[in-house]
Design a protein around this nucleic acid. Structure first.
Length: 673
RNA sequence: GGCGCAUUCGUCUAGUGGCCCAGGACACCGCCCUCUCAAGGCGGAGAUCACGGGUUCGAAUCCCGUAUGCGCUACCA
């Protein structure tokens, strides 16, 4: 029977409205006051899959002809009729009908008692953008109308207008005053080479990639290796491997190059130097000769005095000529000069307009004494140079975004659109840690997750398409991803849900093709099966195994121990207790009879197919006067060595008559001993 | 301490002033199906929308405050 599936693109009735397919329900339902309100369970636990074109989705469970509407194939459990209950909320409502309140209010409204509504309702007309969550910064916030009109930050770019962007993200950008910005979206993933990429970082990369690809733009990879002390050798390869495993590609990057090469920051030092020189010449930056000792003291003093910590601007007062002279010979850093007064405002696509007071931002370092830039400088310089239109990064950057924006402005660059996404938390609400499963992408590969499933899960952690779609194949994601629907609240990583999703991918042909599944299985078996299993792994056997085990595992890691007895000639004999099991615990003699009977009938079958085997075993049980299930279990344990296995008859058919009979003989010997 | 961001079932989320005393999913519980285990079907429990004020005929939704969590406060990114 085909499962009912909600496939994206189908019109989906809202609550209380059901398609014609539900007629049989409605017709049979008892007429009760709340009958118009279908139970929420009605839609059932069907997997909402989005991974495939509609027709395939309908057909894939083998049942319905293409013409059939999804719901039409949904054969309800007849027992469900007549005991349909109203949803929980509705039941409560029936107990205490508060709805009267609302009705009264509406009546008064209708009576025209409150004409003021018109004004308030005005903003409801027309399509409104997704409202940025953060709307509580009163002071610096312009009235809604004004904001929409000017949109850009003070001194910012008019084309950066996240707060009035239509909900379905339109990929247009207006020309800047200075010229025309490339229309194509360009995003980047810019990790620092400090080891394996964390799932949190990768999730951000996934979103950035999806966003770029979805809008026909480019995605690039850039290495942020400006802190030599933290660099971990081999990181870049791990980063690239993680992305590739998930199916993410990049148009430009350290390995493939591109028009803005190099894509490694340590190879772009001249650019930062030049930008710094310009800023110094303009008076926006200055060399600072303060020692780290002085800085430490300063910080301590400020802490003691309960003042906000930060550089006190001592070196800003050195006359430029003198500073330049000293800079030629003395070690120094370069600091960006932040104004002492006023505010800095920038727009975040998700959070709206954010304003901070300049006096709270100190003169931060942009160029370190070793000649490397800090992130604060490298980000504006490189993202301008590489024509990045949207900066998608973690929210830990939110507090320093005003600094970045000031550098963009000072250098005359075009500000990118900022998207600061939230973090991923561990199950305890703290940081994700090894205790609760993996942290690194490639660890999930080890653990037997398929990349499509991890991709799907990660993208959906903090993002949703709508109120009901969970399973969206990466290929489909490319068509439906909408970055404005990112959630800003931190999300807890739920390994159980990932496992579930992995299972969904494993057992659905439309999500993972049978051929690919065979490869996935074979690779895993080759890796994890004991050495005595012959190599190469028998692909045809694997192919035959797929339908037997795919719905019994959640990860590939569970596979080898579930099917090893298909591949090894001998099995480890079961314990006597296991063989007897509950039914024969006190009657080994009956067990022996059962096994012998089974053997006799099996040996006598003319063909060795699942139905024939089943028939033989049932016949044996009947002759012996034993329960079929008990005889089955005897065979199961005897042939496989364990009590939990894939379906018995199919398994026996694959194992072959000779091997099965031999193992049964061994089991019988066990009972006699 | 200061600043910033956030707060809807245990968890992920839907939600943009009336279709919501809140919908979906994972997990959990029960029943059905069944050769074990799964998968699947059906059902259930689970959120006074962090709290307190305010605006409004009407607030999860708008405003203010409080609490809590997280982040930043480096010559790290």
């Amino acid at each position: 029977m085909a499962r009912a599936r909600a496939v994206q693109g189908l019109p989906r009735p809202r609550r209380g409205v059901r398609g014609p397919a539900c007629r049989h329900h409605r017709g049979a339902a008892r007429p009760r006051p709340d009958a118009t309100r279908p139970s929420r369970g009605h839609r059932g636990r069907s997997v909402r899959a989005l991974g495939v074109p509609r027709a395939r989705a309908v057909r894939r469970r083998g049942g319905a002809p293409p013409g059939h509407h999804l719901h039409g194939t949904h054969a309800p459990d007849p027992r469900a009729h007549g005991r349909r209950r109203a949803p929980r909320a509705r039941r409560r409502a029936l107990r205490s009908p508060l709805g009267a309140h609302r009705a009264a209010g509406l009546a008064r409204l209708a009576a025209g008692l409150h004409a003021g509504l018109d004004g308030r309702a005005a903003h409801l007309r027309g399509a409104r953008p997704r409202r940025p969550r953060a709307c509580r910064r009163g002071a610096a916030r312009a009235p809604r109308g004004a904001r929409a009109a000017t949109a850009g930050a003070p001194g910012g770019e008019p084309w950066v207008r996240p707060t009035i962007r239509p909900r379905r993200f339109a990929m247009t950008s207006a020309p800047t005053p200075h010229g025309t910005r490339a229309t194509a979206v360009r995003t980047r993933f810019a990790p620092s080479p400090t080891g394996d990429p964390h799932v949190g970082n990768i999730r951000t990369a996934l979103w950035a990639w999806l966003f770029a690809r979805r809008s026909g733009g480019q995605f690039l990879l850039r290495l942020e290796d400006t802190d030599q002390s933290r660099a971990v050798p081999g990181s870049l390869a791990r980063i690239e491997a993680s992305l590739r495993w998930l199916g993410v590609d990049w148009d430009e990057g350290p390995d493939v190059g591109g028009p803005y090469a190099p894509y490694v920051q340590s190879e772009r030092l001249e650019g930062y130097r030049a930008a710094t020189d310009r800023l110094v010449a303009q008076g926006d930056a200055y060399p600072c000769f303060c020692t780290s000792e002085r800085l430490d003291q300063l910080r301590k003093a400020q802490q003691a005095a309960k003042q906000p910590p930060g550089y006190d601007g001592l070196c800003a007062s050195i006359p430029p000529a003198e500073a330049a002279q000293r800079a030629a010979s003395e070690p120094h850093v370069v600091r960006f000069h932040m104004p002492d007064e006023g505010t800095t405002t920038f727009e975040d696509l998700l959070r709206g307009s954010i304003t901070v007071e300049n006096r709270l931002l100190d003169d931060f370092v942009i160029l370190k004494s070793d000649g490397y830039p800090t992130y604060h400088l490298a980000h504006p310089v490189d993202d301008e140079a590489m024509q990045i239109t949207h900066v998608i990064r973690g929210e830990e950057w939110l507090p320093s975004a005003p600094r970045h924006v000031r550098i963009f402005d000072a250098l005359g660059y075009t500000r990118p659109v900022y998207v600061h996404n939230s973090v991923i938390l561990g199950p305890d609400g703290g940081k994700l840690s090894k205790r609760h499963g993996a942290r690194f992408v490639l660890e999930y590969a080890e653990d037997g997750y398929v990349p499509e499933a991890l991709f799907n899960y990660l993208v959906g952690l903090g993002w949703s398409l709508d109120d009901h779609t969970e399973v969206i194949h990466p290929a489909r994601m490319l068509e439906v991803f909408d970055i404005t629907r990112l959630s800003v609240t931190p999300a807890v990583f739920d390994t159980q849900k990932l496992e579930w999703m992995n299972g969904v991918y494993l057992r659905d042909d439309a999500l993972i093709s049978p051929d690919r599944l065979v490869e996935l299985f074979a690779d895993r078996l080759d890796r994890d099966l004991p050495p005595e299993a012959p190599r190469p792994i028998d692909r045809e056997l694997v192919r035959a195994l797929v339908p037997l085990v795919r719905e019994r595992i959640k990860t590939l890691a569970e596979l080898p121990s579930m099917v090893d007895f298909f591949f090894t000639g001998a099995i480890t004999p079961p314990a006597r207790e296991t063989l007897l099991g509950k039914p024969f615990r006190n009657d080994p003699e009956a067990a022996r009879r059962g096994i012998e009977g089974a053997r006799r009938f099996l040996a006598a079958t003319s063909e060795w197919t699942p139905p024939a085997i089943e028939g033989a075993l049932r016949a044996a049980a009947e002759e012996l006067g034993q329960k079929p299930g008990d005889v089955f279990m005897l065979c199961r344990v005897g042939i496989t060595g364990r009590a939990v296995t894939p379906p018995l008859f199919e398994s026996m058919a694959l194992i072959g008559r000779e091997t099965c009979l031999a193992r049964i003989d061994a089991a019988r010997a066990l009972l006699e001993g």
